[in-house]
Amino acid sequence: MSTPASAGSQPGRERDRDEEGRARNARPRDGLGRPLPHGAAGVERQPEGVDRTPEQAVSEAQRLLDDGMPFHAHEVFEDAWKSELEPDPLLWKGLAQLAVGLTHAARGNAVGGARLLRRGREHIQPHAEGTPHGMDISGLLAWAGQLAGELDAGHTVSSAAERAPRLRGRQQAR
């Protein structure tokens, strides 16, 4: 459904809207969530508002991270956060921020990537002694800290898939 563009936008252009009338960009996106031109082949978007068990959320996010699509993994974590999945919604928010941090780093935004990695670490830190849903929180903390430090030092991320964290199990040196 489309409605006329709001004041200040390009004349004659209509904004993409969802079923509830909220503005949504219907342009296809690449694996890092960047919009592509209308009509271009893009990566299928993650549906929003999907109810998943914590185990399903972790598995789906890992698959997307492994495929080099951290932006899409962040959407899975965001659904978990907004669904207030146990043990703590802020854990899921932190995981979403880690995924977005990797997204920014892979897009070439080192400053934003490092900032989001640090924010994500703050939110998952309270779970460092545990393994909620089998996740290696201490390993994720180390991964995020190392990557943020590398970004601060001027290093770049050439492949999101190669730098993706392991949500369960040991982190691999890259």
Rank of each mutant, 00 (worst) to 15 (best):
M1N: 08
S2V: 09
S2C: 01
A5I: 08
G8H: 09
G8S: 08
G12S: 02
R13I: 09
R13D: 05
E14L: 07
R15W: 14
D18C: 07
R22P: 08
A23R: 14
N25H: 03
R29L: 05
G31I: 01
L32C: 05
G33W: 11
R45E: 12
R45N: 02
D51P: 11
D51A: 08
R52F: 03
T53R: 09
S59H: 11
A61I: 13
G68P: 05
P70I: 04
F71G: 11
F71T: 13
F77D: 00
D79G: 01
W81L: 06
S83P: 04
E86T: 03
P89A: 04
K93H: 14
L95S: 06
Q97D: 04
A99R: 04
T103G: 04
H104V: 05
H104N: 07
A105M: 08
A106G: 11
A110R: 09
G113L: 06
A114Y: 06
R115T: 15
L117T: 07
G120C: 06
G120L: 11
H123T: 00
I124M: 04
Q125F: 12
M135A: 02
L140S: 03
L141Q: 07
A142E: 13
W143C: 00
A144S: 14
Q146Y: 02
L147V: 12
L147S: 06
E150T: 09
L151A: 01
D152H: 12
A153G: 08
R170L: 14
Q171V: 13
R174I: 09
